[in-house]
């Protein structure tokens, strides 16, 4: 198995720690809030307020489960539009009360279904992109497992994007890539390699800014190893970001995404 496929496999492991476990390890006094105030509470997105080093923050993330029952309740971490709208509601709340936002991404993608289309999956993702680009508080996004396409990006328009060592982020799954472009799903490993989806690849092309190391004995056996690092890094980085004036912060965020693209003219 090549390095890219190892990331795909590890990021999808059912034992891989979920957003709520990360929140529990990193923050204190987490209070979960529910609902988008429009349609319902999407359990594949969790969020609320907590403290970090004694200071209030808003946390939002995609939630998977460790069992089939749990995963059914969480829709296997594939949010509906109301999930993205809940996330946005909580981020706008953070902006109002001037507290930073930390997002956790772990999704194979936004859900593809009839209800999701009826309620505007495209609009919900698009709205998050435009609103996060201009959200007037620091945003740090952490990819803890899978990062699939627009459904991941909808929580990842941030000042900094970090990724666990065995995380991944791609425009579509390597399986989808192989079957659409090559009509051959069995070429999945080759697709994974070519797509440059690993943390090492992504830091090279500046899609992510930092790689969080994972323990030798597996993240699920020793989550604290990685969350201790995240906690320290978050405290340091949020202090830096919070001290910037808001125009500088927003223009740096703009430039962070403005730079992507390779073309000749």
């Amino acid at each position: 198995m090549n390095r890219a496929m190892k990331s795909v496999t590890m990021s999808r492991m059912i034992s891989r720690p979920t957003t709520l476990e990360f929140i529990d390890e990193i923050f204190d006094d987490f209070i979960e809030f529910h609902g988008d105030r429009l349609f319902k509470d999407d359990k594949s997105i969790v969020g609320g307020i907590a403290t970090l080093d004694g200071k209030p923050v808003t946390v939002v993330g995609v939630q998977k489960g460790h069992t089939i029952e749990d995963n059914l309740a969480r829709n296997f971490g594939s949010p509906h539009p109301e999930g993205y709208r809940k996330a946005l509601r909580l981020m706008k709340q953070a902006e109002k009360f001037n507290r930073p936002v930390i997002t956790f991404v772990n999704t194979s993608g936004a859900y593809c279904g009839i209800g999701a289309e009826e309620r505007g999956q495209g609009e919900a993702i698009a709205r998050n992109l435009i609103e996060m680009a201009d959200l007037k508080v620091p945003i740090i996004c952490i990819f803890i497992g899978e990062g699939g396409s627009g459904g991941a990006l909808a929580l990842a328009v941030a000042d900094e994007v970090w990724m666990l060592e065995n995380g991944m982020y791609a425009v579509l799954s390597p399986e989808g890539f192989a079957s659409i472009l090559w009509r051959n799903p069995s070429r999945v490993e080759e697709a994974a390699e070519l797509m440059k989806i690993t943390a090492q690849d992504l830091i090279q092309n500046k899609v992510i800014d930092k790689i969080i190391p994972e323990p030798e004995d597996g993240l699920h056996n020793n989550l604290k190893y990685s969350t201790d690092i995240i906690k320290t890094e978050l405290i340091n980085k949020l202090e830096v970001l919070s001290n910037k004036n808001i125009e500088d912060l927003l223009s740096e965020r703009y430039n962070r995404f403005r730079q992507f693209g390779e073309y000749s003219e």
Partner: peptide
């Protein structure tokens, strides 16, 4: 949709255009 042959860079275009639209909107 996204130009799959350009991988993750094509996904980033969604954020890039949306951010530009945010300024136009403002």
């Amino acid at each position: 949709g996204a130009r799959m042959q350009e991988g993750i860079i094509s996904l980033m275009q969604m954020a890039k255009v949306s951010a530009a639209l945010s300024k136009h909107n403002d």
